[in-house]
Simulated scan of single mutants.
Amino acid sequence: MRVTGGKSIYGAAVGILMLDARFPRIPGDMGNATTWPFPVHYKIVRSATPDRVVRGGAEGLLDVFVAAARELVDDGVDGITTNCGFLSLFQQELADAVGVPVATSSLMQVAQVNRLLPKGRRTGILTISGSTLTPLHLEKAGVPDGTPLGTTEGGREFTRAILGNELELDVDAAREDNVEAARALVAANPALGALVLECTNMVPYAADIRAATGLPVFSIETFVRWFQAALVPRTY
């Protein structure tokens, strides 16, 4: 048998651009490697803090994200994603710059999920920061106009700890924030048929949200599993 080289790293088809953060990443979090049933390759984008990306609109960070994405491709990944849904802002620029498929944001699932639902039902978005998730973020991700939006802002733990990059996280309180925000979103929009979690740090609570609302829950985990399955199809 003969094989061909050309990459520095093999077996990790998905490269993940990581924000520069130190808050706890529990199992289920995109930045916890045990979350994935397949190998991934991480690249930290220095200076891209959660606050700067989510509340600061990622201003001035495009070039460093492009450079980091190119490094991932040079290392050998076949596709790139990110660990913040707000990076939908850079979707087209990153795809154009690296020449491999790019899936920046869980929000890119919204239009697709809508097509799965019965007539009269639509998808709602749960975000970590409703006050700074702008129409431009949604437009760049292809989210239909008028999509209902809920947020964990105003809760006692999740948004503050993540965006504040705190070194401790009360997991039970964070779970409660996510469940309460999801319930409020559904109560305000009874025609919802599914939820998409914008924030990659919400994944550990997806099952709780599903149980509390009775709705299918799509997240960066569902998106990247689908993405990776196309990059590395199963052999039968």
Rank of each mutant, 00 (worst) to 15 (best):
residue 202 M to F: 15
residue 175 R to V: 06
residue 147 T to V: 08
residue 103 A to T: 06
residue 216 P to A: 06
residue 125 I to G: 04
residue 47 S to A: 14
residue 140 K to Y: 10
residue 60 G to D: 05
residue 58 A to K: 05
residue 106 S to G: 10
residue 11 G to W: 06
residue 152 T to W: 07
residue 118 P to Y: 02
residue 38 F to I: 05
residue 143 V to G: 03
residue 16 I to F: 06
residue 131 S to W: 11
residue 223 F to K: 10
residue 212 A to N: 05
residue 58 A to H: 02
residue 155 G to W: 01
residue 236 Y to F: 15
residue 209 I to Y: 01
residue 168 E to F: 11
residue 86 F to P: 01
residue 35 T to P: 10
residue 78 D to Y: 13
residue 39 P to E: 06
residue 33 A to V: 15
residue 153 E to T: 02
residue 131 S to D: 13
residue 80 I to C: 03
residue 27 P to M: 11
residue 10 Y to N: 13
residue 20 D to F: 10
residue 91 Q to E: 11
residue 41 H to P: 00
residue 18 M to Y: 02
residue 157 E to M: 13
residue 165 N to Y: 07
residue 219 S to F: 10
residue 199 C to F: 02
residue 137 H to A: 03
residue 203 V to F: 12
residue 197 L to P: 00
residue 39 P to S: 11
residue 217 V to P: 00
residue 134 T to R: 14
residue 29 D to K: 04
residue 174 A to F: 00
residue 38 F to N: 04
residue 71 E to L: 09
residue 72 L to T: 00
residue 178 N to D: 09
residue 195 L to Q: 02
residue 217 V to R: 00
residue 83 N to R: 08
residue 52 R to H: 15
residue 73 V to M: 07
residue 130 G to W: 07
residue 50 P to D: 07
residue 26 I to S: 00
residue 51 D to E: 15
residue 120 G to S: 07
residue 115 R to I: 03
residue 153 E to H: 09
residue 188 A to T: 07
residue 123 T to E: 06
residue 1 M to E: 08
residue 198 E to G: 05
residue 53 V to Y: 03
residue 207 A to D: 14
residue 191 A to T: 14
residue 174 A to V: 06
residue 206 A to Y: 03
residue 18 M to I: 03
residue 62 L to D: 04
residue 26 I to N: 04
residue 213 T to N: 00
residue 16 I to Y: 09
residue 126 L to E: 04
residue 2 R to A: 06
residue 174 A to N: 07
residue 221 E to L: 14
residue 120 G to V: 08
residue 43 K to P: 00
residue 7 K to T: 14
residue 39 P to W: 06
residue 17 L to M: 10
residue 107 L to G: 01
residue 190 P to G: 05
